[in-house]
Design a protein around this nucleic acid. Structure first.
Lengths: 234, 234
DNA sequence: TGTCGATTTCTTGTCGACAAATAAAATACA
DNA sequence: TGTATTTTATTTGTCGACAAGAAATCGACA
């Protein structure tokens, strides 16, 4: 365990403890530092962050609310497993959210949204260029999340972000062991999407998003069928 | 304050306290017993349920996670307001979820699902027959929630239930003051939906759900434009 | 040796109390 | 009388401790 506490006064601001634990736990779960099934021990976290169990518990309740951890009553709590059996469920929702968020972005985006989207696309292109698979996953998710934000529908944004998180977990499970690369084609498709969004061409945006999403789903399915060690995550 | 505690030993089962508070708070919020903007006092709830503040706080964290209450850091927490300005956002999501859940129900339903759906429809018809507006709202939501369950996509089920909850709050805001009735037409449309779902006619299910959803949206909009005292809920 | 039951242990859920942060009230000052 | 500043009060966030529940360990008995 690394102790990065160098401050002499270890007093944190009042409400920041839970957010810190929540953010860090969340990142560790999505990055598979805590793989599915990992036990979450409250007292261990408490002494790790040098705080009481109360704020730890609040962070855990939040994570449980988002489905990132599962809590057995009166028993242990652990990182939720990835549901490989109902994968089509995930794909259905992902494709639909890709489409509807891109549609709405074409309808409701403002100039400043395009700036953000283009910045995310630049980061994604850089990650592809550098063949950094992990960065590709993160920047790709950030790109589409930015598009969803431009669509300005909080309900879709919320569901979409959850799906992107889950996808980040699944992809990382495979990319970390194979080091695949997302093809340059995705970069080009992103560029096309930006173009039609800027042109406010709703139908074209929908069509592009559909093709793009199915492309990604195909890519994921290919990874899964090629590799059969699905038993890792229970 | 009514004291319904008649048991001499007021010991509850270990994990049941939070669920009880959560369920009751949730119902009171959705039924507008606690209208938007109502302050939520932890100590008051603590002595009302004769328990410590800790389980109360856990229930509140969960409710905040679902967006039913808003928490100001270090200050008060109150029932979240209904966002009338971005209503179209709600309608967009509602219509889409109506369509996709009905589609999926037509695809994936099993015989036992139809039994449940028909039971919900019977309850809805009875509420319409009795001209009980509040029961109509609840049974209509339960009917469509049952269809979503038959679709077996947890992501859509989760978002749809949230939307139905929010709709329940909005409708109750108006029905409780006007005593309107949902027309018999909705009962007939429900019957048609059951028929096409049972026949596994996906496209017809989608089309019926679309018309039905837009019908409901029109109904809600009519209520809102007819009445201009939107300032009630801030 | 194997099975059932009691005991121990370990984790969670709950409690009462204290401290920090903010709002409200009271006081000082022009 | 109006405004700024200090004081009080109320509410939240955090803590340490205790008790309940369930798995694990141990022991009795056939």
């Amino acid at each position: 365990m690394t102790d990065t506490d160098s401050s002499p006064t270890l007093e944190r601001k009042r409400g920041s403890g839970v957010k810190m634990v929540y953010d860090l736990l969340r990142d560790e779960i999505l990055d598979l530092v805590l793989p599915p099934g990992s036990p979450i021990d409250e007292v261990q976290l408490a002494e790790r962050f040098k705080m009481s169990r109360t704020p730890i518990r609040e962070a855990l309740v939040r994570l449980a609310g988002e489905g990132l951890i599962d809590t057995l009553p009166n028993r242990s709590t652990m990182v939720s497993s990835i549901d490989f059996l109902n994968m089509h469920t995930f794909f259905d929702a992902l494709v639909l959210m890709y489409r509807v968020t891109t549609r709405l972005a074409a309808q409701h985006h403002r100039p400043e949204d395009l700036q953000i989207i283009r910045a995310r696309q630049a980061e994604f292109a850089a990650a592809v260029q550098a063949q950094d698979a992990l960065a590709m996953i993160a920047t790709n998710a950030a790109f589409h999340s930015a598009i969803a934000e431009a669509g300005r529908n909080t309900y879709f944004i919320g569901l979409f972000n959850r799906l992107l998180d889950e996808g980040r977990r699944m992809l990382r499970l495979y990319y970390q062991s194979y080091g695949d690369q997302l093809p340059q084609r995705f970069v080009d498709e992103h560029e096309d999407m930006i173009t039609v969004i800027a042109a406010r061409d709703v139908e074209a945006a929908d069509q592009l998003a559909k093709v793009h999403a199915e492309q990604i789903v195909t890519q994921i399915k290919r990874l899964f069928t090629r590799d059969e060690r699905l038993d890792i995550a229970l």
